[in-house]
């Protein structure tokens, strides 16, 4: 009698282990779904976040010297907020119509760092980033040389990157490149 009861009891323990495994699997299935969903959201944000230059103002006036750019960061498709922590760009100029930065005059690079620039999910946001030039620098002399009066225009290439973090548990970092090529009037 005892020998029959013992395996029965142990078989029930096995059944109990099996039930625990099934419950763990159900919890894991939800975890798997959550992981997949988060991955899909992050991928959507990375693929669709974009940035455009909406305006550039170049000035060689001593009181207002430098290059100001307006950048529109698009996050209208994503379901996650993004936090822009740095915008970095370089400016190249030339008096002849070429668009290869290595054949142009390098005016300077600026990195604008901030931890408070949030772009909420489903919205767009526009930033203005300024690059100041030192009036005594070689870059300023180049800018004056390539945009002589009365024409006051030159060819510019602006290339840069928006660095962002995706808000959420992952805190994943990403970059959005932006680019501008064209002729601009330099305000005297």
């Amino acid at each position: 009698m005892m020998s029959n009861q013992k395996p029965m009891k142990k078989t029930k323990i096995l059944e109990l282990i099996g039930i625990c495994l099934v419950i763990t699997a159900l919890i894991s299935a939800y975890g798997l779904y959550y992981t997949s969903q988060e991955y899909a959201k992050v991928t959507e944000t990375q693929l669709n976040a974009d940035a455009y230059i909406t305006g550039i103002a170049v000035s060689k006036n001593i009181s207002d010297l430098g290059v100001d750019i307006n950048i529109l960061v698009l996050n209208n498709v994503s379901q996650l907020d993004i936090k822009i922590y740095m915008i970095e760009y370089s400016v190249y100029a030339s008096d002849i119509p070429i668009n290869r930065p290595n054949q142009m005059d390098f005016l300077g690079t600026v990195a604008s760092a901030s931890n408070t620039n949030f772009v909420e999910a489903g919205t767009n946001f526009e930033y203005t980033v300024s690059m100041g030039l030192d009036p005594t620098s070689d870059q300023y002399d180049k800018l004056v040389d390539i945009s002589p009066s009365p024409d006051n225009s030159a060819h510019f290439v602006v290339s840069g990157t928006v660095f962002y973090k995706i808000s959420g548990p992952s805190d994943l970092q990403g970059t959005i490149p932006f680019y501008f090529v064209g002729m601009l009037e330099v305000s005297p």
Partner: peptide
Amino acid sequence: ISAGIVVAFFFASDFLKFATGF
């Protein structure tokens, strides 16, 4: 199948750890 799902969860969490907090 239950054991497979548990294993898959840990593998997927490790492969996609850049996207989730876990």
